[in-house]
């Protein structure tokens, strides 16, 4: 099917926004376009992007997940503790990723079987899990230590493969998988269908509860992955890590053109959305803008994007 210019604009608006932003930033700050800085931007973006990928699944069903920041912190703390206690990298990764998934499943069950609104259910787990993390860490950072296991573990945050930082590589894997699942599998189709019309989906034989539980599980899993890379990068877990990350993730999803009502959007858009936020942060840092003004600038960009999106 041939696309008109207008349709093209609508479809690729997030991408065009990103390019525009990149051009402006590179004009203001020539350092922006250096290979080193671009890798930097990608690495800084990767945490938010990975969380936002999982968030995309949830939002596509018409839900929301506020608990991702807290899951990140708890998973980070548990993994740092396990590494410090020498329980082995493999077991640590397995436990941490399972835990994140399981926490998502719990939220999903509360939402589907318990009929609690997603906003409320995940608000509860956001608060609860932050508390658990603070109790578990006693409010202090947990260091991963300095032995061989800690070294291997830190590779997930600081390592390189063929010149690409490992977190960036993980991000790419997460996005390719998410894209494949959403675009080419039955599960992905069901995710869109539920967001479009839940009751009609049920009558089409879609097991709505199962799919919804699964999307929260995916969101929990991606939060755990982000928790691991963040902890590995810093070689320690902060109990307050990830606070506010849920909002950055939601912003990335929305900037990428996904509808909060569900049913419409792509994970590619989310990737672009995360990059826009990442570049903005990076540029404001390069320009030495104070963090107070950075928040204002970020808010303004999101506002403009959302306003543009309303005009179809």
């Amino acid at each position: 099917m041939k696309m008109t210019f207008k349709e093209f604009l609508v479809k690729f608006r997030p991408l065009l926004g990103l390019l525009l932003l990149a051009v402006i930033v590179s004009l203001i700050s020539p350092r922006f376009l250096s290979v080193g800085n671009i890798m930097n931007v990608l690495r800084q973006t990767s945490i938010n992007a990975v969380i936002a990928a999982g968030m995309t699944f949830v939002i596509l069903t018409g839900g929301i997940d506020l608990s991702v920041g807290s899951i990140l912190a708890l998973c980070g703390a548990i993994s740092a503790y396990m590494i410090a206690e020498d329980m082995g990298v493999a077991l640590t990764l397995f436990t941490t990723l399972s835990l994140g998934t399981l926490l998502g499943i719990f939220a999903g069950i509360a939402i589907t079987k318990g009929k609690v609104q997603p906003f409320i259910a995940t608000l509860v787990s956001m608060t609860l899990l932050r508390g658990v993390t603070l109790v578990f860490t006693d409010g202090k950072p947990i260091s991963t230590g300095y032995d061989a296991a800690a070294d291997i573990y830190s590779w997930f945050g600081t390592g390189y493969v063929l010149g690409v930082p490992v977190p960036v590589l993980l991000m790419i894997i997460v996005f390719v998988l998410s894209w494949y699942v959403l675009k080419h599998t039955r599960f992905g189709r069901y995710v869109y269908a539920i967001g479009g019309n839940e009751e009609a989906s049920r009558l089409s034989g879609v097991r709505v509860s199962r799919i919804k539980i699964a999307v929260y599980a995916i969101s929990g899993l991606t939060a755990a992955i982000a928790g691991i890379t963040l902890t590995a990068r810093l070689s320690s877990a902060q109990p307050t890590a990830g606070a506010g990350y849920e909002l950055d993730a939601i912003a990335a999803v929305v900037l990428g053109g996904t509808s909060l009502a569900g049913g419409i959007g792509t994970v590619f858009g989310t990737f672009i959305g995360a990059l826009i936020i990442g570049i903005l942060n990076n540029a404001l840092n390069l320009m030495n803008v104070s963090s107070y003004y950075q928040m204002i600038a970020k808010g303004a960009v999101i506002l403009i994007a959302v306003l543009m999106d309303r005009k179809k």
Partner: peptide, 27 residues
């Protein structure tokens, strides 16, 4: 309300109840 997912395409609506039949061994 109950029959269609209006935001989805004709093809995605028609195949929704039988998607199993449209996937290969790699899902």
């Amino acid at each position: 309300q109950l029959g269609l997912i209006l935001g989805m395409s004709v093809k995605e609506n028609i195949t929704l109840p039988a998607l199993k039949k449209f996937q290969n061994m790699f899902r």
